[in-house]
Amino acid sequence: MTRTKETESERTRTPSRRGTTLAQRDARSGMLLISPALVIVLAVVLVPLAWSVLIAFQRLRLINVGRTGLFDNLTTANFARVFGSDTLWDSLVTTVVYTAGSTLLAIVLGVVAALALRRPFPGRGFVRAAMLIPYVAPVVAVTFVWKVLLNPEFGIVNSWGRKLFGWDDPIAFLSQARGEISLFGLDIPVPTALLTVIAFEGWRYFPFIFLFVLARLQAIPADMEEAATIDGATPSQRFRYIILPQLMPIIAVLVVLRTIWTFNEFDDIFLLTGGAAGTEVVSIRVYELLTVQRNVGAAAAQSVFLAAVLLVLLGVYMWVLRRRAGGRS
């Protein structure tokens, strides 16, 4: 009943819309349908982005946030302060090492896991789902478990390490800036906490790589590999010359994504070490400027600096990729 009524009304309305084609009406409803999403994204992401550049040039402290107008107290002192800090370059180096290490580790682990799960076996569905858990579980919960696992007093890693590998002292994985590994009588200094955080990142984010690489692997047609097998290529040769080249495009995209996200990562390091013991990345400094020193302007300047460095790094990466692609063709 209602249906026929609706069709009826539609039919009677059509003549009044003479002159508007379906394409025009589609264009109008398209704009209409997308606009809520656009408005919210503009209001909550793009406008604040521009605003944070403005704040970076303002003398603004948390106490007088309410009274300061949009263009009051313009100054470049925030940037002077950010660049004048002795530890800025240390923390930038830490950020770069952390980003490169975590991205590389996650990519290697993800590709290896995807290769191992490429062919079907009983229980593959379960294994696949299990491997994604570190990525979906709440970051607060997993960092807490890692902190307890690695705890020097009652963590299981240290108690087993002492029992099985004969460690003399428990290792403070998350609070020791410099440790030493004895290899063949040489004492090699290692940044313990930074390495631990990188290992955590590899553990938490390899599922993301794994998911995409596995999807790509399963879309590779079998005939090329079969041809290579008949021609006598061994498994490692088939991987090197047939599979890997076809994975490279998706790996390149994943490297960019993981680099962007790790470079700005705050939660993981904040929750694991709080930025202590040589793990103070730039995003932790932003947070400390904002909440501990309560200097909003300086925090914004620091975050704009972080974003600028990221853009430069990505620009270089894209340039290298394009040059290599150009050289090959």
Binding site: V41, S52, L257, L310
Partner: peptide, 15 residues
């Protein structure tokens, strides 16, 4: 938007 650092947007939103 998807790629952009949350920490940069966080400050103006905080203000």
């Amino acid at each position: 938007v998807y790629l952009f650092p949350a920490i940069v947007v966080a400050i103006p939103l905080f203000v």
